[in-house]
Simulated assay, not measured.
Amino acid sequence: MTKKKATLIGLVAILLWSTMVGLIRGVSEGLGPVGGAAMIYTLSGILLIVTVGFPDIRKFPPRYLIAGSVLFVSYEMCLALSLGYATTRHQAIEVGMVNYLWPSLTILFAILFNGLKSTLWVIPGLLISVTGVSWVLGGDSGLNIADIRQNVISNPVSYLLAFCGAIIWAAYCTVTSKYAKGHNGITFFILLTALSLWLKYAFSDQPEMVFSWPVILKLFMVAFALGFGYAAWNTGILQGHVNVLAAASYFTPVLSSALAAVMLSAPLSFAFWQGALMVCGGSLLCWWATRRA
């Protein structure tokens, strides 16, 4: 396979992942936040067994197996439940934007814990990303502290889960980079996430899952996006132009929000798009700071 073709396959992964906010929210509206997430990760795990295969976890470095499992499962649960617990579709898109703090945080963690070289431009990059998320949470008012506070207080669980998820995913990327040593545990981690969600569903009071054709269609679409997205991304980063894929991935917040707005019929304000562009710009600046170094 040529580098160009592998890079295009990697770009398809970014497109697939950009549909997940809208699709996860759509599934959770019919099957509940926990039941819907459990179904999604179960189907995704089955698809990954077919596309990527099941790894021999006995060969995994112990640190990667333990830390990777805990961090990956925690992140995926935070992401799915933060979207499922959002009170409105518009709020679900806002919650998804909070989650996109992870690219900037990943670079920060790599600098702090993995010795990644960077220039001081990473500091304004981080500040721009945080300001962008705050701008989104301010609604039509933009960077308005009172409106941001009122918005977060209206549903602190969703926003807190999304923020914790961003931190956890940054930690997962850092741990994977340091301890994985070429091993890929994504299939095992996805199935472990599904098992954890089914246990939560079984031992907690959850709404009944109501299946309908639109919900079933979204369920298979998001399982496809998650499962084949990881398979396509692996192909891209192993055989394609990694720098191109890294730069393109930082535009995911804007693409994800646009697709979610269409799928959920939830128009977004001009202030939202301003904040989304700030998140992308801040992430790109952080990435550029490491390239300059």
Results as ranks from 00 to 15, higher is better:
F224S: 04
W121E: 02
G165E: 08
R291I: 14
T193I: 06
L197W: 14
I93S: 01
V254M: 10
S129Y: 01
L238T: 04
V215H: 14
L143C: 00
A261L: 01
L197R: 08
V136R: 01
R58F: 10
T7M: 14
W169L: 15
E29T: 11
Q91S: 15
L108E: 08
I107L: 13
D56K: 14
G236S: 09
A110P: 07
G132N: 08
C164V: 14
L65W: 12
G165H: 07
A261K: 03
E94F: 10
L219T: 06
I153S: 10
V136P: 01
L47K: 03
W213I: 09
R149W: 03
G281V: 13
I128S: 13
S44P: 01
M39V: 15
F54M: 10
G36S: 11
M221D: 14
S177W: 09
A86E: 00
A225W: 02
G138N: 04
F163T: 13
W213M: 04
G35F: 05
F220A: 07
I93Q: 02
C78L: 06
V27N: 12
M209C: 06
L101P: 05
T235M: 01
Y75A: 12
L191V: 09
I190A: 08
A67V: 07
T19G: 08
Y64S: 04
Y230V: 02
L245C: 08
W102V: 13
L245I: 12
F189V: 05
A202K: 01
Q150N: 10
V262Q: 06
L195V: 15
K181P: 02
L264C: 02
A170Y: 10
T252E: 12
V98S: 14
I49G: 03
S196F: 11
G275H: 03
S204P: 03
G281D: 15
L192D: 13
V210T: 09
Y230L: 02
L127S: 03
L217Q: 07
D205H: 08
C164A: 15
L79F: 10
L245W: 00
L259K: 04
P33Y: 12
V130C: 04
